[in-house]
Nucleic acid binder design. Structure first.
Lengths: 191, 191
DNA sequence: CGGGCCTTTGACTGGTTTCAACTTCTGTGG
DNA sequence: CCACAGAAGTTGAAACCAGTCAAAGGCCCG
């Protein structure tokens, strides 16, 4: 299971098996059931998680009490509320397993120690954040560029498997509209 | 002028004056007039820019020919199309000066050399991207959480000076609605 | 002083939400 | 293996947020 992380790190930097074993020691493996929370609103988000298997989502609850999903994390993705993780302020987000999942987590403190001991890992995390930053820029662009209906069609054609994998109300929550409207969009195309 | 960058780097890592001089050698200073483009759509975004003075914006042109501003960068902020910068694909964005500005730019190649020579700078850029990633998460949250009108009021109360500093049509472009609608919102409150 | 860009105003339109009722699916215990 | 309850998905009507278009007014800068 930790091989997944090793392979991932090696896509970005060189790291010997020995060093990887050292790196891995800073992590904690966590198994999550479907709908189990890894992190809840109000707490400081003190750990950064790498998805080995399964799927997580990050969401917040708006004034009306509706859950708004702002991000999914599939296999090989890192997820945390980096606002809270960086600033040590209480988080406004939940992180929850969409399905049965295995993750490797590292606390902020352990990550600091890891980076002191293995400075090469600064490069790895720099590249991870740079990529995530790029993905966020792309995401923001699509939020500006498309109507809700277009977003659905775009997302469904880019990630057909993923659309099958998750329930519709989560997809609607991620795309930023109501389940009712998603239902309406879908019925248009089928005819 | 390069002192601004030195101070900024020192908020994140320790760096001697000597080393800073070495670091600075990888950068190119660029002066921009109001509305001058630093980067245009279709080109690979090959440089990463630190705003020393002034203000930049990144925008794209949608199907209707309307400019959509997705990001501003004020003093002390870094800006690039990191999708293009990371993947070496042609960019879909423009980067333009909102007002007369001074920036320090570094190309992707020079940044690689810089990081090889001064590995401590990996940490600096890791922290920059982590912070930017956090800011993007926050941004995405506000895009989901607020109506257009609420976004205006929130933004105006958080950044009253900045709202004065830029023309209204750019603010509307950033907030994701039309100048006409912004005008309508503003007239409500004045009464 | 003039021209062009920016902002305002108003009428009309449509995409999306809201609400409520109904149907279908899913999983859990008997 | 069935029954049933709760969760998820569908449908339709009414309301609303925000866009579009067109025209007029204000203001900056040459």
């Amino acid at each position: 299971m930790s091989d997944i992380l090793k392979q991932h790190i090696r896509k970005f930097i060189k790291l010997s098996d020995e060093d990887f074993a050292g790196v891995l020691a800073y992590f904690v493996a966590v198994d999550l059931d479907k709908k189990q929370n890894l992190h809840v609103e109000g707490r400081i988000c003190n750990s950064n998680s790498f998805v080995v298997k399964g799927c997580l989502r990050m969401f917040f609850v708006n004034e009306k009490g509706v859950e708004q999903t702002i991000q999914f994390a599939l296999e090989h993705w890192w997820l945390a509320d980096y606002i809270s993780f960086s600033t040590r302020q209480p988080s406004e987000f939940y992180i929850q397993a969409v399905e049965k999942s295995n993750v490797l987590t590292i606390t902020a403190e352990e990550q600091e120690k890891l980076l002191t001991t293995y400075p090469i890992m600064e490069r790895y995390f720099r590249l991870i954040h740079q990529r995530a930053h790029a993905a966020a820029q792309f995401r923001i662009k699509t939020l500006y560029n498309f109507s809700r209906e277009q977003m659905y069609h775009q997302f469904a054609s880019n990630y057909p498997d993923f659309v099958q994998r998750i329930p519709q109300y989560l997809l609607a929550s991620f795309l930023g509209f109501t389940p009712e409207y998603l239902s309406e969009i879908r019925s248009k195309r089928i005819s």
